[in-house]
Structure formats: C-alpha cells, structure tokens
Design a protein around this nucleic acid. Structure first.
Lengths: 248, 248
DNA sequence: CGAAATCTTGAGTATAATCAAAAACGGTGG
DNA sequence: CCACCGTTTTTGATTATACTCAAGATTTCG
C-alpha cells in the first residue's frame, strides 16, 4: 500500500462546484487537505462497524459498498460508494460507526484526518454546508433504498439499482451514455437488493430476455434506457444531481 | 388551525443539550426562532414529495411518518417522526423534497422559516454542527431500516421497530420503562416494515403469544424487554442517544 | 346508536428462499 | 499458452414466507 500527501487534486471539488462556485480560498483549502492515499485490494474492509475513526475516507477510484450485517450474519449493502464519495463522513460527528465500508473492486482511497476537515469547516462555512448537503443526499438515497427493498419486487428492484448506478457513474464521468464498467458480482447485487444470489441471477436473465440490458463480466450495457427506467420506476430526483446532464 | 409565534420553548434545545452545553447566545437564538404553530389532524400530509418548502417543520407533539410511494401506489414509511424531530430539515439544503411527511396522530407542528434557520446557523457554528448531526442520525436510522426490511423476516422486523420506538420515546420522555402510548395502526406498521397489514396482524399475534408484548389500541406494553431486543436483533447504537439512560 | 375504520381469520396463491450441483469464467503459475 | 483452481454464474427441484382475496368481528368515534 503506497502513501502520499496532498495529491493536488480532490474529486470533492468537482462535486461541490456542481452546486456553487468555490472562491480561491475555499479551493486552496480543499486542495491542501492532507490526504493519505492507499491502494486497497478488492473485498477488504476500509472501516468496520464499531470503529471510531479519526479520519474519513475519500474514494478516489474503484467501487466500494457501505453495509451492515444482521445478528444471523446476513449482509445488507445499504449503498454503493463511487469515486468522489466519502462514505464515512458521518464519523466527523458520530463517534461510533454503525456500518462497515468495504471495497468491492480494487480501490484507491484517500484518508483525511478529521482535524483537517474540522479546520476547513470552521474557516469556510460554505464548505460545511456542502458537506452537510452531501450527507443529506446520502440520506435521500437510503430512503429510496428502503422503498426499493420494502415495496418493490425483485425484478423492479434490480432494474432500479442498475438505473441508479448508471446515473451516478455518468455524473462522475465514469459512464458513457448507456454503458459502464460495473465490477459488481451477483452476490453483491443480492446483498444490495435484499434477495438471494440465485434470485438475482434469475431476474437478470429476465432483464436480458426482455432486451433491456447486456451484463457480462464487468460490463453493463443498457439496451433500452427508457424501458429500464420505467421497469425500475426510476426517477433520479432523489440523487440531487443539479447542474448535471446525467439525469437525462 | 391555530397559529402563534415564539412559543418560548423549543424541544430542539433539549436534544442539542444532550450533546453539549449551549451558551446563552445559542440558547436565546434557538428560543427566538420564529415558529408558526399549527394543530394538524391525524392522517394529513404536512409536506409532500415534490414540494419546495421555504420552512421546516418541528414536531411538537404527536406522531408523524416520513414516507415514499412506488409507481404502483404502494406506500413505504421510511421513518417515524416523534416530538423534537424536524423531518424535513433536509429542505434547508435540497430544493425539492424526495419524500412526504404525514401525521399519523393529531399533531402540533411548528413551522420555522428557512431564512431564520440559516441565520442561526450562520451566527452559531455549533448549532450548524448539531443540526448536521441530527441529519446524520436520521441517515443512520435509514441504514438500519434498509437492513431491517432487506434482511430480516417479518417477525424480527416487527420486534425491531417496536424496540426502536420504545427507545426513542423514552429518550424524549414519552415512555415509561417498558410501555408507551403508540397510536400506530397495523396498516402503518405494515407500511413501515414492508409487509401487508394481514401479515402484521399475524406477527403481532405471534409476539403476543410468545409473551413478549401487549398491544391493544394505542397502548404498547413490553412484557419481556430483553427477549424482545433479542428477537428484534436490537442494538440501539445507531440511534446515537449519548448522554441518555434510554438505551438501557 | 350507527357508520367507518381497524383488526382478525381462513383458504388458496405467488414470490422468493433453500439446497444441491453443474457449467462457465478468470486469474495464476508452470 | 495451457492447465488448474477458486470464484462466479447458471440450472433444477423443493420449500417457506408472505401475499391476495374475501368476509366476519371488533373497536372507535361522531
């Protein structure tokens, strides 16, 4: 695992600038955030439920997942984390983590000390607001997932998750119009939509049979985006992508 | 519907003071927040998905629920809102609401203009942090609900929701040790745990038959708290009740 | 007291789980 | 480059949890 500081770029900036224009002081403060960058293999926990980290992790590249586990040992992924996300930003205000975060593909992750984040927030209230806003969007996504898992059937759920992933990947420049790399196994999809891997396999075959998607290996190709959105009952409002073409 | 301003008390204060001691300026600012208080009947929407409110609502008394609806018209409650909660605080930063909030019992609700909230946040960074923290706890509850609905069976889910409700009601002084008023219908429980009302009826009977609870009308009495927690896989960590005896 | 809402019960059905095993794939080392 | 091994995907058969539909009992409230 390599480690450097001040990589000189920070995907948080791009996200914030889709909401408002940063001034020089703010941009510099974000660029100067100390950050320990590590390469992490697939399927490694980055942080664990019960931890009290003194830093937060910024996904620089790769896919990660936020998850919880029942007393019976069943895993539920509550969110996929893409480049630009800070899945444990909450730990800035909540001492004990109530969830784990694991890589699902090889990732590059930047660790930023809470001290440095607090300092930036103190000096730049608009950055505080932007971080707060990010956590509110996370909450909106969780709400949609409660609905998805609670009130939709597996076929619809699967379509919905695929729509969300493509839309979010587009927003960070990691998808073409209707296709993207998607290094997520059927087991992981199962843990995300709350069904078994066997059933994921069956609904995926159904989506393929309907001519909606191609999904082989790490590659997703959406053949009928309008139909998939309809089948998945997908309306991207809850992602709050504002100045963004991605919601098209 | 009656309307007054500056009721002279504010249940947000109590919540914040369980985390840190407010100074005089902060407390005065919170007490002076302009607030339009309204009495709202049961089963009325307070705000609706798609709204862009210019104020947030503070539940002063009664029970409310945050919910979303599928394209098929199925409702999913994503959170119960108790006195002291501000279920649409998110609207301070996110222009369009992605969920509705409805009363489930008669409620007294205080509406606070965003302008006033922004002003307080600007002048008192610790209050900003406290509000942010509240929204992070909301997110933690959503995560637990995704797990609950996605990976637990109905009997366990129901027990879990009852544990959460009693614990949260205790924290705001609305429950005795093991009982509380609970004006929630089986239909509403159904929408909260993602099953039908018929099935809620059956798991409740099972919980009664096991000697874990009494639940008639609006009254919940938990006969075996330890067992119910165990059955519901309930660990209150995710509620972040800090300086609070409620988690006992 | 009566109407509406809520709760309860039963029978039949559907979606998804479980279990087990085979096929396909992907990466690694010889 | 190919053989091998672990992982992932696929298939089939059986079972279980929860849904649907329908009707009756009970409670609540005006």
């Amino acid at each position: 695992m390599s480690a450097t500081f001040h990589p000189g770029y920070n995907p948080m900036i791009r996200k914030i600038e889709s909401i408002f224009a940063l001034n020089d002081g703010e941009r510099q403060a974000l660029l100067k955030l100390p950050m320990q960058v590590m390469a992490i293999k697939a399927d490694q926990d980055i942080v664990r439920e019960g931890d009290s980290p003194s830093r937060s992790c910024l996904i620089l590249s790769g896919f990660a997942a936020t998850y919880k586990v029942t007393a019976q040992g069943k895993r539920q992924i509550v969110s996929f984390n893409l480049p630009g996300d800070v899945p444990d930003l909450q730990s800035l205000h909540l001492k004990v983590l109530d969830n784990s975060v694991s890589t699902i593909s090889p990732c590059s992750v930047g660790f930023i000390p809470h001290e440095a984040l607090r300092d930036v927030c103190e000096r730049y209230p608009r950055i505080t607001a932007a971080f707060w806003r990010e956590t509110l969007i996370d909450a909106a996504i969780f709400r949609e997932w409660v609905l998805n898992v609670g009130r939709r059937e597996a076929y619809t759920r699967m379509a919905h998750v695929l729509c969300e992933l493509l839309t979010r990947l587009r927003a960070v420049g990691l998808a073409e119009d209707h296709s993207c790399d998607l290094p997520i196994t059927q087991n992981e999809f199962a843990d995300a939509i709350g069904v078994t891997n066997v059933h994921v396999n069956r609904v995926l075959q159904q989506l393929r049979a309907e001519g909606l998607i191609e999904l082989n290996g790490d590659r997703l190709n959406i053949l009928d985006w309008e139909k998939l959105k309809q089948v998945g009952e997908f309306d991207p409002t809850y992602l709050y992508l504002e100045n963004n073409q991605a919601a098209a």
